[in-house]
Amino acid sequence: HHGSGALAALHADGPHAGLPVTRSDARVLIFNDWEERKRSEPWLRLDMSDKAIFRRYPHLR
């Protein structure tokens, strides 16, 4: 199991509170979210491209 239990660094406060600090933090969040959702949506594709990251977390651009 590759990303399970990996912890992402999140901004503690300010405008980005609760959001990932780096792209690799964002990838951890996206992976964990996908892993949760694919139980009920097995067709869901995992997209951890930069484009997917920016779409979801525009502050990382």
Results as ranks from 00 to 15, higher is better:
L46T: 00
V21F: 04
W43G: 10
A9Q: 13
H2C: 15
D33N: 06
A26W: 05
R55Y: 10
A52I: 06
W43Q: 08
R56S: 06
L19M: 06
H11V: 05
L7A: 10
D13Y: 08
A8R: 04
D33H: 06
L46C: 05
P15Y: 05
D33G: 04
L60R: 01
E35P: 00
A26D: 00
D47W: 03
G5L: 13
R55E: 13
H59C: 00
G3V: 13
R39Y: 10
R23C: 14
R56C: 06
L19N: 03
E41A: 06
M48P: 07
F54K: 03
P15N: 08
R61H: 07
L60K: 00
E41W: 06
V28T: 08
A17E: 10
A8T: 05
H1K: 12
A9V: 13
A6E: 09
H1N: 11
D47N: 11
A6K: 14
G14S: 04
L7K: 13
G3A: 11
S49I: 03
S49G: 04
F54N: 09
K38Q: 09
E35H: 11
I30C: 02
S4H: 11
L29V: 08
R55L: 14
S40A: 12
D13H: 09
E35N: 13
T22D: 04
H2I: 14
R61A: 10
R37I: 12
A17D: 04
H1M: 10
F31Y: 14
A6L: 15
D47S: 02
P58T: 02
H16N: 11
R37F: 03
W34T: 15
R56L: 11
R39I: 12
H2D: 08
G14N: 04
R55P: 00
A12F: 09
P58M: 02
V21T: 05
M48Q: 05
M48S: 02
N32K: 13
A8W: 05
R55T: 15
F31G: 01
K38R: 14
H59A: 01
A9C: 15
A52Q: 06
W43P: 02
I53G: 02
T22C: 07
G5H: 12
P58F: 01
T22W: 13
R61F: 10
P15G: 03
P58N: 03
L60C: 00
F54H: 07
L46G: 01
W34K: 00
E35W: 15
L7R: 12
A9H: 14
G14T: 03
G14M: 03
R23T: 11
L7Q: 13
F54A: 06
A9G: 08
G3I: 14
R27T: 03
A17K: 14
A6T: 14
S4K: 15
H11D: 02
G3N: 12
F31D: 15
A17C: 08
Y57M: 00
W34S: 01
W34P: 00
L46S: 00
P58Y: 15
H59Q: 01
H16S: 06
R23H: 07
K38V: 13
E36P: 01
Y57N: 01
E36G: 07
R37D: 15
A8K: 14
P20W: 01
G18L: 06
A8S: 05
K51A: 13
A52Y: 11
F31R: 08
R45H: 09
F31A: 04
Y57E: 00
L29R: 03
D25F: 03
R39S: 11
G18R: 04
N32S: 08
R56K: 13
S40H: 10
H11R: 04
A9W: 09
M48L: 14
L46N: 01
L29D: 00
A52H: 06
G14V: 15
A26N: 00
P15T: 06
A6F: 13
P42F: 04
P42Q: 05
E36R: 13
V21Q: 07
P58D: 01
P58I: 02
R23D: 06
P42T: 05
R56V: 09
M48I: 12
H1S: 12
L44Y: 10
H16K: 05
R37C: 05
D47P: 01
D50T: 07
H2V: 11
T22G: 06
K38M: 08
R45A: 15
F31K: 10
R56T: 15
W34E: 01
H16D: 07
H11C: 07
W34Y: 11
E36I: 14
A8E: 04
G3D: 10
A26Y: 02
K51W: 11
R23N: 09
R56A: 15
H59K: 00
T22A: 06
R23A: 10
N32W: 13
W34A: 00
G5M: 11
A26F: 01
N32V: 09
H1I: 15
G5S: 09
A52N: 08
W34V: 01
G18W: 04
K38W: 07
P42E: 03
D33V: 05
E36N: 09
D47F: 03
G14Y: 04
K51G: 08
G18H: 05
E41N: 08
G14L: 03
D47Q: 03
H11A: 04
P20R: 01
F31Q: 05
K51V: 12
F54G: 05
L29M: 08
A12Y: 07
A6G: 10
R61Q: 09
D13R: 06
L44R: 06
G18A: 04
S49K: 01
D47R: 02
D33C: 07
I30S: 00
G5T: 14
S49F: 02
R27K: 10
E36M: 12
H1P: 11
N32H: 12
R39E: 10
F54L: 10
R27I: 06
T22F: 03
L10Y: 09
A52F: 07
P20M: 01
N32C: 12
N32E: 10
H2M: 12
R27Q: 06
S24N: 12
I30W: 01
A17V: 10
G5Q: 15
L19E: 05
F31P: 00
K38S: 09
D25M: 04
S24V: 09
A52P: 00
R55C: 09
H16W: 15
E41F: 08
T22R: 07
L10P: 07
R55I: 11
G18V: 03
H2S: 12
L19F: 04
K51S: 11
A6R: 15
R56D: 03
M48R: 02
S40P: 02
L29N: 07
P42G: 05
A6Y: 13
L46R: 00
L19R: 15
K51M: 09
A12I: 13
L29K: 02
A26E: 01
H11L: 05
R45K: 14
A17P: 03
A6N: 12
E35Q: 14
R27L: 07
R61W: 10
P58S: 02
P20Q: 01
F54Q: 04
S49M: 02
A9E: 09
K38E: 02
D50R: 06
D25G: 05
S4F: 15
P15F: 05
H11M: 03
R27A: 07
E35D: 15
S40R: 12
S49P: 00
R45G: 07
L29A: 05
V28D: 02
D47H: 03
W34F: 08
E35C: 15
R61N: 08
L19D: 08
M48K: 01
A52G: 14
E36D: 11
S40Q: 11
R61S: 09
G3F: 12
A17M: 12
L7M: 12
S4C: 15
S4T: 13
E41Y: 08
R23E: 06
I53T: 01
W34C: 00
A8H: 10
Y57R: 00
A9T: 13
G5E: 09
R27W: 04
S49R: 04
R45P: 10
G5C: 14
A9L: 11
H1L: 10
F31I: 06
R55W: 07
